[in-house]
C-alpha cells in the first residue's frame, strides 16, 4: 500500500514536468498493443451486424445497414442460457474440488502432522511426471462410469493435476504461524473444521489463483466435453460454439453473431471481476 501511495506521490510530481521521450514511446506502444488486441474483436462485431450479402460483397467496410435479425436467428439454435449454466455449474464444481482437495492434503503435509508426511509429499509431486494418454483416459473414464455424466466431468476436471496446487499450497502454509492451529487443536477443535474455517480464509490468495486457473481451463476446454460428454444436454458453451461452428460455417455473419453472444456475458463478468482475479493471481504468484 505504501509503495503505491509513494508511487502516486512520485507520479504526481512527474505529471508536472513535460512528457519525456520515454513516456511518448510508452504511450505509442500502449496504443499499438491495444489496437492489436481490439482490431480482431471489432472485426467480428462488424461482421456480426452485416447481412450475408453485404459480407460477401463488401467484407471490410464498416457495416452500412445493420441486420438485427442475425441475433434472433442465432439465439434459439445456440441455447445460450442452458450451455452457460452447464459451464458455470461444472466450473464451480471443478473449482471447488480443485481447491478443497489439495488443501486437505497440503495442510497435514506442510505441518507434518503424521509420520511419513514427507514421503507422501514426494509421491504427490512425482505424479506431475506420470505419463498418460488419451486412449487410457477414455478407457478408465468409461470403466468408472464417469463417461457421459456431468458429475464425471466435474470430477475429471476438479481432481486432475492436483500436484501443482498442493505444491503451491504447501509453500504458502509454511509461512503461516503455527501457534494458531496448535492452540486450536489443544482446545479440542476438530481437524477438518479447523482447516475449513480457519486455514481457508488465510489461504485465499492461493485459492483464488487456483480457482482462476481452473475456471479459465474449464471455460476454454472444448475438447474434453466433446470426448467425454456426447449428450447434447450436458454440453458446455465452448463445445456448443464448436458444434455451432460446424453447422453454420456457411453463414459467417450468423457465426460472428454467435461468437458475440457467447463472449459477451463472459466479458461483462470479467470486467467486473478482473480486479479480484488479477489481484488474486498476483498474490498467489508472489508467494508461490
Amino acid at each position: 500500500m505504501e509503495i503505491v501511495k509513494r508511487g502516486r506521490a512520485v507520479t504526481k510530481k512527474r505529471n508536472r514536468r513535460k512528457m519525456t521521450a520515454g513516456d511518448i514511446f510508452s504511450l505509442a506502444m500502449l496504443i499499438v498493443f491495444s489496437a492489436m488486441m481490439l482490431y480482431p474483436l471489432l472485426l467480428i462485431v462488424n461482421i456480426a451486424l452485416k447481412s450475408y450479402k453485404e459480407f460477401l460483397l463488401e467484407p471490410l467496410k464498416i457495416v452500412q445497414k445493420i441486420r438485427w435479425e442475425n441475433f434472433s436467428e442465432v439465439w434459439e439454435d445456440l441455447d445460450v442460457f442452458h450451455r452457460v449454466w452447464n459451464t458455470i455449474y461444472m466450473a464451480a464444481g471443478a473449482c471447488l474440488l480443485g481447491a478443497v482437495i489439495p488443501m486437505l492434503a497440503a495442510f497435514p503435509i506442510s505441518r507434518n502432522h503424521f509420520r511419513g508426511a514427507g514421503k507422501v509429499y514426494m509421491f504427490i509431486l512425482s505424479s506431475m511426471f506420470f505419463p498418460g494418454s488419451l486412449v487410457a483416459s477414455i478407457t478408465i473414464a468409461k470403466a468408472l462410469h464417469l463417461y457421459n455424466s456431468p458429475i464425471g466431468m466435474i470430477i475429471m476436471w476438479g481432481a486432475g493435476g492436483p500436484a501443482m496446487n498442493v505444491f503451491m499450497m504447501v509453500g504458502f502454509i509454511k509461512s503461516l504461524p503455527r501457534d494458531l492451529d496448535d492452540a486450536a487443536f489443544i482446545d479440542g477443535c476438530s481437524y477438518f473444521r479447523y482447516i475449513i474455517q480457519m486455514a481457508l480464509p488465510l489461504l485465499l490468495p492461493i485459492v483464488s489463483t487456483i480457482i482462476v486457473f481452473k475456471a479459465v481451463g474449464v471455460w476454454n476446454d472444448f475438447l474434453s466435453p466433446l470426448i467425454y460428454l456426447p449428450n447434447a444436454k450436458y454440453r458446455t458453451i465452448s463445445t456448443g460454439l464448436y458444434m455451432f461452428m460446424g453447422s453454420y460455417t456457411n453463414e459467417w455473419p450468423l457465426l460472428a453473431c454467435a461468437i458475440m453472444i457467447i463472449a459477451s456475458p463472459m466479458v461483462v463478468l470479467y470486467i467486473f471481476m478482473q480486479r479480484y482475479i488479477i489481484e488474486g493471481m498476483t498474490a498467489g504468484a508472489l508467494k508461490g
Binding site: I101, P102, L104, A105, F107, P108, I109, R111, H113, F114, A117, V120, F123, I124, S127, S137, I140, L144, M156, A159, G160, P162, A163, V166, Y191, F192, I195
Partner: peptide, 15 residues
Amino acid sequence: AFLGTVPVLVSIIVF
C-alpha cells in the same frame, strides 16, 4: 491428518 491426504492420493491413483 492422513485422511486429509486421501482424496489427493485417490485422484492421483485414479487419474
